Simulated scan of single mutants.
Amino acid sequence: MFALVRRADLAEVIGSALAAKAAGAGVRVIAERLGRAVETVRGWLRRFASRAEEIRRYFTVLLVDAGVDPAPPGPARSVFADAVGAVVGAWWSLGSRWPDIGTVSPWRVACAVSGGILLAPSWPVETINTSRP
């Protein structure tokens, strides 16, 4: 999976906007850097922020459950940044167990793990179970 449901941009584009916001960039700077409309980027950031704590929890559980020797990220300066850190940490942890995962971006992995609905109104629907095929 490489795109999120109801989003025209690739997961990597949206993910780079989320990472930039977590690093402290403003919406206008992010939109300009990505060549996207300010309202589009603002929508991504608002949707992610509205469920940042759930995303942080979900990906932290994945990080711990799937990792060979997991090391959850420490607290960041905001819940938003914590959630982005958990997504990247889960990608790193999955890559430690399955090295081929490290060849794709953390945002493509997040897209796949969420079934493409990371920014959809209905996510998350259930808790993660990494032992289920």
Rank of each mutant, 00 (worst) to 15 (best):
G95T: 07
A83K: 13
W91R: 05
T127K: 14
M1L: 05
G35K: 10
G102M: 08
V68H: 09
L118M: 07
F59Y: 11
V109C: 09
E126C: 13
E39Q: 05
A66E: 14
F80G: 04
V13D: 07
I14A: 05
I14E: 03
R33K: 10
D82T: 00
G24N: 14
A22N: 06
L10V: 03
V68S: 14
V38N: 09
S114T: 02
A17T: 05
G26Y: 09
V79N: 10
R7C: 14
R42V: 00
D100A: 12
L18Y: 03
D100C: 02
P72N: 01
R47K: 14
Y58D: 01
S16E: 12
S93N: 01
L62K: 11
A20D: 06
L18M: 11
G89W: 02
A19Q: 13
E126N: 11
K21S: 10
I101E: 08
L10E: 08
A112F: 09
V84P: 01
I117A: 15
A3N: 11
A71Y: 04
G89M: 10
A90Y: 01
A66I: 02
R47Y: 03
P133C: 07
P133K: 08
P72C: 01
V29R: 13
A23R: 12
I101M: 13
S131I: 08
E126G: 14
A52T: 00
R7E: 12
G95N: 15
S16C: 14
L118P: 01
P72I: 06
V5P: 01
R77I: 05
V87R: 03
W107S: 02
A52W: 01
I101G: 09
V41P: 00
E126M: 15
A23M: 04
I14W: 13
A52L: 02
A17E: 08
A86Y: 09
I128F: 15
A31W: 03
G115R: 08
T103R: 15
A83F: 03
A3H: 11
D82Q: 04
T60S: 12
V13R: 04
K21C: 07
G67Y: 12
A17V: 07
I117C: 12
R33V: 02
S114G: 05
P99E: 06
V84C: 05
P121F: 08
G95E: 07
